[in-house]
Design a binder for these strands. Structure first.
Lengths: 198, 198, 198, 198
DNA sequence: AATGAATGAGAGTTCATTCAT
DNA sequence: CATGAATGAACTCTCATTCAT
């Protein structure tokens, strides 16, 4: 029944009516109360599950990478997961992310915690990448991270499956991210040639 | 009275109650009807003005650039305008952008048209930059553009003035964008030339 | 300003909005309060004036009849006055009559009194006619009177000046009334012929 | 629930508040929306049903008359039906008739059509009576018809069951109508024949 | 496990009314 | 004498929620 996440994506928090949710589930509105104590419960649950699923999905994907994968490659994998999850798999993720700021504090506790946890994963990746010299030093990883996630999140607003495949979008986003972060590739090539830089 | 854009930012389209708007304007709700025919009118107007202001702001900023400014620098200027306008100046812009997808079709006509016009400006800049060889060829400008705007738009969700100044954010975003787009420096020819730049 | 009677005719008591009245008088609504203390006052006044005018009109018309006019002819005159006044002259009369039953008790005192007075005139005519043998004895004058007035009052609902002149309507109504009331013209002609009836 | 016709009779179109209707039905106002889409729907339906019922009632009554009943007797039957239906049976009829002119065009379509149909029946009766020589030739049946219906309709405004029984009223109205329409008895031929009758 | 019927709280909206100007 | 601006009361209507079934 939780496919009521769908309505949340489209109408936003306040615009989500139980009637619509029920209709989407081919049910009558009161039937929802068999499964959830209240509208708020339903939304809280949905919104929580959004980030929760996404985080689990990301964890599994990162764990599945071969050991020794570079931080930058992990970041690019994370970006792919984030995009695909949001665009292909789950209304939940979209519901969670879009309504983040509209949901009253009261319902946000779990959601927020989960979101923090999700961001922590990204932070770890960014930090690792920075430590590894894979992030240019005129970019603050703490700011780059939300910029990246913003670019990815916003895709839900404009991406049109009839214009571009997810694959294309993922590829472009990855290039986009890699170069926005990567330092100029001086060292490797230059070192062989001569003492240009220290 | 239009400072009711404020409520739109916080509560979203459906969550915007006339009572709240009125209270924010130190008025009683019915007083709104002296100026607007309906709630929908008020919102339509507000949301339209959001993009409209932003577009005018951007146009002025671009016109003020010295002739011969490179497309990439124009893009970076546009990014700065977009960020500063959304974060510092105007609830309207935020109201417009955040609620884009939640507003019923009926009210979106003008808003949509204005948004398209705004995007057209960006598109022109991107195309010029591409023609100038300032965009790497493994990035599709048509996709890069919304990724960039997404990164910028999303800032409204997370940016905390107490943590980072807008200046810092702008600087970071500009570096972020410049390198996400710029083609790799060509090492062979570059050796003799000097710093990377753009 | 009292041409607000017009609105009363069309929209009824509860449907009469000060805005409409004011518009009809090429004024803004608050201007009404310069002349009347409240909406109710305006309506009360209007509705009173409706019957009052009508009654005065009728009195004058009856007084103008040559002495010795038969009760029946007086009734027919009254009918003509009633029709003409309602249809040609006065929104007031129509406003008064149509809304009689919809107006809350509180506002009806004067109106009711005036209406009673008006009916009393008719009653006097009917009684006189009955005493004069000009009303058939299988008709109760107390019931015939409101039937007649009903027929006349209702004309405001259906009469279309483009179809029938008031003159035609008046003529027909008079014939209609005369014969609905008059006894069969037996006595005069029969008495001469023989002892048919006692 | 439709017993909300009651309120229409008393308060008129604009004065009919859902609260009152609901109270009369021992319900809360919003409950009305379970059965009707809007106030206007409820009123439209009610007002339509008013004439519709009346027309059906009349049709049945006329069909029940023995074949060969004279047109005049049919008219008198119709008058009885009209009176009894309006006064004894149905708030609906009264609601329909009283508010005829106050209801906005938008809601009148069906009601108007039905009313025309009802009038058509009367017209048929009047025409038949005229063709049969049962209507005096100094009365235009097209004008006599609304005069009669007016007399009957108006009864709702003044009839007081405590003063006169419906039976009395019906009897009087019938005499009233019969003679208002019937041609003068032709004295010459009549002498030999007997009572007037029709 | 689900629904039809109903309700109470609260939303948008209308309107008479006020008041400074 | 009249209006622009604003308000409070009241109305229609929506919606989450309940409850008997």
């Amino acid at each position: 029944m939780d496919a009521a996440a769908h309505v949340l994506c489209t109408k936003g928090f306040a615009g989500t009516r139980l009637t619509d949710v029920a209709e989407h589930a081919q049910l009558q509105a009161p039937a929802i109360y068999y499964y959830f104590a209240s509208r708020e419960d339903l939304i809280e649950e949905t919104v929580f599950r959004g980030v929760n699923d996404l985080r689990n999905h990301l964890k599994r994907a990162l764990d599945a990478l071969p050991p020794g994968t570079s931080p930058m490659d992990q970041i690019l994998t994370a970006a792919e997961v984030h995009l695909r999850h949001g665009l292909e798999l789950s209304d939940y993720a979209r519901a969670s992310i879009r309504n983040s700021s509209q949901i009253p504090e009261r319902l946000r506790a779990r959601h927020k915690k989960e979101l923090t946890a999700y961001n922590r994963i990204w932070k770890r990746l960014m930090t690792a990448a920075a430590a590894d010299g894979q992030i240019r030093d005129d970019v603050d990883p703490k700011l780059a991270q939300p910029l990246i996630l913003g670019a990815l999140n916003w895709s839900a607003e404009w991406w049109d499956p009839r214009r571009n495949s997810v694959d294309t979008l993922v590829a472009n986003a990855q290039v986009f991210i890699r170069h926005s972060l990567s330092p100029a590739p001086k060292p490797v090539r230059r070192r062989a040639k001569g003492p240009v830089s220290g």
